[in-house]
Design a protein around this nucleic acid. Sequence first.
DNA 1: CCTTGACATTGAGTACACTCCAGAATTTAG
DNA 2: CTAAATTCTGGAGTGTACTCAATGTCAAGG
Lengths: 127, 127
Amino acid sequence: MNYGIGKFSRIVNISVDTLRYYEKEGLIVPKRDNVNRRQYTDHDVKWIDFIKRLKKTGMPIKDIKKYAKLRYRGNETINDRLKLLYDQRHRLKADQVELQGHINFLDEKIQTYHEMNASVEAKLESK
Amino acid sequence: MNYGIGKFSRIVNISVDTLRYYEKEGLIVPKRDNVNRRQYTDHDVKWIDFIKRLKKTGMPIKDIKKYAKLRYRGNETINDRLKLLYDQRHRLKADQVELQGHINFLDEKIQTYHEMNASVEAKLESK
DNA sequence: CCTTGACATTGAGTACACTCCAGAATTTAG
DNA sequence: CTAAATTCTGGAGTGTACTCAATGTCAAGG
């Protein structure tokens, strides 16, 4: 099944402008019909979902682009793509540790504020 | 102890331009000396460290600004500041869940690619 | 057949968080 | 005392990821 950019936009929930921007960046390059209109496929739906996911993991467009280039080159690039995924996984694991550190930091700060509040109340009490 | 912007910049490892930008945004507003030069204090060092931490947790400047405004208003605003910290902690907890989801997603994709590789090798084997 | 709507391209504009630059004043080192 | 360094302000420029506007082409519905 083929979709024009408008319909595809509604399916994947990305604006037509963004889709054209992604194309300019080489993330997704649909075929064109006889009058030069973009023809997206169901395959493209899956691909966009993957892109959306990579984006959510915080991967910048230029890295997704690298992945896209490899993908458009075919199956011989699977190991290169695997490496990119491993790298990203590695980053996310690091993010996870950092994130826990940030939560701990906030917890400490919150604790400090609670103690400040308690001491203010203690002063009021003693009046 | 007081520091000029250059020295302070070296202490907190933030460029003088960024410090002036932070001041314009109201994050940190140092006193000025008799010839209008910024005078940062040790207290400011601690405050900047806190800002850096909040930034690392992904808090946008305008939210840090809210926090800074409350802080400059004094101790009466501790509960408001506590709320901001709780909100941010809440976001980070949500990020944590999302992050795990992303890692799982990558793991699945990596798994898929490994299987593709295995099947390619199986084909080569059978030749 | 003609209007409406979807699509095309190019280029400009936006938000965020810096980053850099020009021109002036003041401070410090030699 | 002079030259170099530091700081000041205002404003322009950068990169990322869109987002919007202007202008033009094509196709299907009434």
